[in-house]
């Protein structure tokens, strides 16, 4: 048995080496770097330098506020939308189901730069289709990129468009695991379709929804692409700057790796904390 284990570990060694070098070491290293002043040469150990700055940095709190705002609004909206999409996809009345599934999933496959460019065009003040549509129903044009609130809304719309279908597919798998005869029993019990949804479907989907929510929280805490590409590096005036973007700005534009590492650990800590709270709130009764 020992020999067999040794053989197994020999086969695992290449992967474990790569994992240690490119995953474990950076995780440890960035933690250590977060306690160093990295804008001096050589770097020096200064435990409160970065963490102390974090507590008093308005840019950090602005990014934190933006990230949490997106989290609080966008994640519930997207998950709700994904549930509705999954229920529609699961309907026996739906024709060409495969096509819809592909269409809902496709945004994830589209390149981030390409979709961001399309969103910028669609929401352009002068020739974007969204403003044209708003005009056509008698509403005023919105300058999506120059005002903070529309810019934040745009980020949320874009993220929702990109990930709602992905979550819907996961939720669809959960829906399909609910046996038909549970619904048939409810039908015989004279329970309406709406009540079946709220009293049977939703409670039985809870583990899948929680899973999607956790993934979405982690994703949103790391949000970078949309504010970087669509609202031009967190514009207007940092109005859509997220923690991910602040980290990038500090780490790779200001080359302040110590502060960027502290931000990274804060993001991870927040994601873990929020997820734990959510798991506790949605725990199964014993």
């Amino acid at each position: 048995m020992r020999y067999r284990n040794a053989t197994a570990y020999r086969f695992l060694t290449p992967y474990l080496l790569i994992f240690a070098i490119f995953w474990i070491w950076p995780i440890i290293s960035s933690f250590l770097i977060s306690f160093q002043a990295t804008r001096t040469v050589p770097w020096r150990f200064a435990p409160t330098f970065n963490w102390g700055r974090l507590i008093g940095d308005p840019a950090f709190f602005n990014a934190l506020k933006n990230t949490l705002l997106i989290l609080v609004i966008q994640v519930p909206v997207m998950i709700s939308l994904a549930v509705v999409m999954a229920v529609l996809l699961n309907s026996p009345l739906l024709k060409a189901r495969g096509l819809y599934r592909f269409a809902f999933f496709a945004p994830v496959v589209v390149g981030e730069v390409a979709y961001s460019a399309v969103f910028r065009l669609m929401f352009s003040l002068d020739f974007g289709i969204v403003n044209k549509l708003l005009n056509s129903v008698g509403l005023e044009k919105i300058d999506w990129f120059s005002n903070v609130t529309p810019a934040m809304a745009l980020i949320m719309i874009a993220v929702t468009w990109r990930w709602a279908g992905y979550n819907a597919i996961i939720i669809l798998a959960g829906l399909q695991s609910i046996p038909d005869d549970v619904y048939e029993a409810a039908t015989l019990d004279r329970v309406s379709k709406l009540k079946q949804f709220f009293y049977i479907t939703l409670p039985l989907l809870k583990p899948v929804i929680v899973f999607c929510a956790v993934l979405s929280i982690i994703g949103t805490m790391q949000l970078f692409t949309e504010p970087f590409l669509i609202t031009e590096r967190g514009g207007p005036g940092g109005g859509t700057e997220t923690l991910g973007l602040l980290l990038y700005r500090q780490g790779f534009r200001s080359l302040n790796f110590g502060y960027a590492s502290a931000i990274a650990y804060t993001m991870a800590g927040l994601a873990i904390a929020i997820t734990l709270v959510q798991l506790w709130l949605t725990r199964e009764p014993k």
């Binding site: 046996p179 005869d181 549970v182 048939e184 029993a185 409810a186 015989l188 049977i200 039985l204």
Partner: peptide, 10 residues
């Protein structure tokens, strides 16, 4: 009706 798989609400 009593179903083969019981069809209880889990």
């Amino acid at each position: 009706m009593v179903f083969q798989s019981y069809a209880l609400y889990p």
